[in-house]
C-alpha cells in the first residue's frame, strides 16, 4: 500500500497541480476535448436521430451503428488517425475519434426513444388535430426524453474515457498523467492520475443524472397523468 500513500502525497503536492504538465492544465485540456466533441456529436446525432424517429425510417442504421461501434477498438482508431496524414494537425485525431465514438449511443438511444413512444398516444394527438411539428415538440420529444438523456449520459461517459485514451496516442488530457507515470515508472503518479480520471468520469455521470432530472419536461406531471 506504499503506492497508495505515495499517490495521496502526489495529489497533495502543490507543484503537481501547476504548470504545463500540472493537473489543472491537463484537466482543462480534458474538459476542452470532451466539451467540444460532445457538443459536436449532439449537433450531428440528435437532429438526425429525432428526424429518423419522427418519420419512422432508418431504424436498421440507427441500431446497428451501436453494434458496429462496439467492435471497433478505440485505441486502434486513435492510433490509426494519429499515424494518418490528419496526425499532422495537432488535436484533430483526438477530436475526430471522440466524435466518432460519441455519436452511436446518442443516435441509437434517441432513435429508440422516438420509436418507443406509444402509438396510441401519437394517434390521439393526430386526432386532436396536431400538426407534424406540434406532434414532435409536444408529444414525441417529451416522451422520448428519458432515452435521449440516457444516450447523452452514455456519450458523455464515452467521451471522457476516450479523451483519457488519447494520451496513449500522445495527446494531452488527464490520461497523460497516467501514461507519463508509466513512462517514468512512477506508480504513485499512475494511481493519482487514475483517481483523478475516475473522479471526473463519475462526476460527469452524476452531473448529467441531476441535469436530466431537473430538465425533465414531464417533471411533476406524472402524478396527474395517471
Amino acid at each position: 500500500m506504499n503506492a497508495l500513500s505515495g499517490a495521496f502525497e502526489w495529489l497533495t503536492t502543490g507543484a503537481n497541480w501547476q504548470g504545463e504538465r500540472g493537473v489543472w492544465h491537463r484537466l482543462a485540456e480534458h474538459l476542452y476535448f470532451s466539451g467540444v466533441c460532445l457538443a459536436a456529436s449532439v449537433l450531428i446525432a440528435l437532429p438526425l436521430a429525432l428526424w429518423l424517429g419522427h418519420i419512422g425510417k432508418g431504424g436498421a442504421l440507427a441500431v446497428n451503428i451501436s453494434n458496429v461501434g462496439r467492435a471497433i477498438p478505440t485505441l486502434a482508431v486513435l492510433v490509426l488517425l494519429t499515424l494518418s496524414p490528419l496526425g499532422r494537425y495537432g488535436d484533430a485525431p483526438t477530436l475526430i475519434a471522440l466524435v466518432l465514438f460519441a455519436v452511436p449511443p446518442l443516435l441509437t438511444n434517441a432513435y429508440l426513444g422516438m420509436r418507443e413512444v406509444d402509438k396510441a398516444v401519437v394517434e390521439a394527438a393526430r386526432g386532436m388535430g396536431m400538426s407534424g411539428g406540434q406532434l414532435f415538440l409536444r408529444v414525441e420529444l417529451p416522451l422520448a426524453y428519458p432515452l435521449i438523456m440516457t444516450g447523452l449520459r452514455s456519450a458523455a461517459v464515452q467521451v471522457v474515457a476516450t479523451a483519457t485514451l488519447a494520451s496513449m496516442a500522445g495527446e494531452g488530457g488527464l490520461g497523460r498523467i497516467i501514461t507519463q507515470g508509466f513512462t517514468v515508472q512512477n506508480t504513485p503518479q499512475v494511481i493519482a492520475g487514475a483517481v483523478l480520471v475516475t473522479a471526473l468520469a463519475l462526476l460527469v455521470e452524476l452531473l448529467l443524472v441531476v441535469v436530466g432530472k431537473v430538465c425533465d419536461p414531464m417533471r411533476g406531471r406524472a402524478a396527474r397523468a395517471v
Binding site: 461517459v157 474515457a161 490520461g175 497516467i178 506508480t187 492520475g193 480520471v197 475516475t198 463519475l202
Partner: peptide, 17 residues
C-alpha cells in the same frame, strides 16, 4: 453501472495496485 463509467485506462491503473 458505476464500474462501467470508469475509463479503462484508469481501471487498469487502479488494479495495478
Amino acid at each position: 453501472t458505476a464500474l462501467y463509467s470508469v475509463p479503462s485506462l484508469a481501471m487498469f491503473s487502479l488494479l495495478l495496485l
